[in-house]
Design a protein around this nucleic acid. Structure first.
Lengths: 229, 229
DNA sequence: ACTAGCAATATTGTTAACAATAAAGTATTT
DNA sequence: AAATACTTTATTGTTAACAATATTGCTAGT
């Protein structure tokens, strides 16, 4: 049963990698579960060759762990790994914000201000309901990252690490965070970038991410307790 | 002709990935050259299956680029990519130094001081000849990274990015750098860590790497001119 | 009843053949 | 002679069968 949207890609291996990534991030394949090659191959209507290549790719993305002659397992989210990942994000996105303060063209800055206004309007209209900015062009963080102009940094953050980050965001469904507070922080970061204050932009971005990770930590510890009852 | 040391690994795919990585980093497979699957398969005495898995892994490490139905190519080092990579290093190793200032146990600090003394003695004895610390336990940077205690950061720096960094270090054979200056900087970083001054440790590590990248840049531009004559 | 060793089974690792796409070469046409 | 279209060749993508390892279930012994 080949469910969901299947974007035709040039090669089967890429296709499967994409679909598996989504399935894991969205929890259709549960955390910690074993990846059975024959089962998945049948499920997606592919042979094991391209499937294995996809699994190797997922291992590189840190979505599964593999042990020789045993197989692959979906990772299990836990607080420590989340904190470690977000500390990396702090360093990398902080640097991205710093670079953006030097490189971001003024029209892109204006466009980003417009986006934040849109977010504001959404909060006003929908009584502070979360604005879902999952990965699209409306994602503030992605915009900053791209504005860094550092191709390696962009690739690392948006291709290598993004899947895992999305997984943490989604599975804890950070309801705890205050969207208005987040918006204020975004605005402050953008102000710093607009003023070409690289130091400040980096500092604010770091604080912003650090704060988010603390909220996520609380959420995860809470749900860990909840799931134990 | 299966040349060089071949460390028996659990699986052929891992073996090949390891050997290919070394071959590329050490320049046995030249930059920009095409990876021919049948040729390499014959050369290493393997079938194309595990070889392809290895290539997928190398793509994740950023050592080759792949295009569908065409094949893989070894990356071509260039100044811009180097600068981008080292900017990432700056952010990540800077963070590692900051964390090390909090987490490094005192006996490990002492052991690192001893290592720097050893480097010093080597310079004194060998008239400032470069001390080769390629990846082993004698590599100051690797020791700091591990002292960060951040598993994700360690994996990223020592497994994902390290191959490319080694490639840059090796192919430009940074003869321009002054080893005594580098040693002084290492010592200053370690002092900051020993005093638990995270801010300072990060700052110094960033400067240290930034300086190294500037030297590499000069070396690369120089050799680019040289190779054009 | 529980543990240890063995047999059976299933899964992963690997291979070789087949299919599809791209590159190279040749011939034909203008 | 140059360019274009076609044919041929080689390479990549995919598949299915085979080999090797690990897991599971069973039997036997204490």
């Amino acid at each position: 049963m080949n469910n969901l949207i299947s974007i035709k890609s040039a090669t089967l291996s890429e296709d499967i990698a994409q679909q598996l990534t989504n399935a894991i991030v969205q929890g259709h394949i549960p955390q910690g579960s074993k990846i059975s090659e024959p089962e998945l191959a049948k499920q997606y209507g592919v042979s094991r060759g391209p499937l294995r290549e996809a699994i190797v790719k997922l291992e590189g993305l840190g979505l599964v762990t593999r042990t020789a002659n045993v197989g692959a397992r979906v990772i299990q989210l836990n607080t420590q790994d989340m904190l470690d990942t977000f500390t990396m994000r702090e360093a990398l996105e902080g640097m991205a914000a710093r670079l953006a303060a030097s490189n971001m063209p003024s029209d892109e800055i204006n466009s980003l201000y417009a986006l934040l206004d849109k977010h504001q309007a959404h909060l006003d209209a929908n009584q502070d309901e979360h604005y879902v900015q999952q990965g699209g062009n409306d994602d503030f963080h992605l915009r900053i990252i791209h504005a860094s102009g550092n191709a390696k940094l962009i690739r690392l953050l948006t291709e290598e690490l993004y899947a895992v980050i999305r997984m943490y965001r989604r599975h804890t469904a950070d309801q705890r965070s205050d969207p208005r507070q987040a918006l204020r922080e975004h605005k402050a970061i953008l102000d710093a970038i607009a003023n070409h204050e690289g130091d400040l932009a980096e500092l604010l971005m770091r604080r912003h991410i650090s704060r988010a990770s603390q909220l996520l930590k609380q959420a995860m510890e809470h749900s860990a307790v909840a799931s134990r009852t």
